[in-house]
Amino acid sequence: LAAYPTAAFEAKTIADLMKALGAGAPVESKDVTVTAPDIAENGAVVPVGASTSLPGAKRLLLLVEKNPSVLSAAFDVNEFVEPSFTTRVKMGQSSNVLAVALMADGRVLYAQKEVKVTLGGCGG
């Protein structure tokens, strides 16, 4: 198994994250979908999902732009799974949530959605 990508999970901004991953600038795409609620009453548990309808994705990422570290989760895409993953994340404040698809041809595509948080998830 590959080593844990510490630098990527410590990146404070999307630009730093892309640098840590050796990826280019992300481009918005209709073929990538982010699922997230409009309003999260509890920032400690926000259901979020990333998926893409495009073939050729090798990795899907879930990002919370205003969290202390932007990257929440990274999923490898292979021939055995659909490029569609759902989990729950903590959000410290209202923020854009992004689904990013790293494509095998080097393209970096994303979709984003603003989630309003009424109770932050970092104070416990």
């Binding site: 198994l1 990508p5 989760a73 490898d76 993953f85």
Partner: peptide, 17 residues
């Protein structure tokens, strides 16, 4: 499936694939 997570995934994590 292989996934890497940071500490911002919620307590008692849920995952669907």
């Amino acid at each position: 499936l292989t996934a890497e997570w940071g500490p911002s995934v919620s307590k008692n994590p849920f995952l669907q694939f």
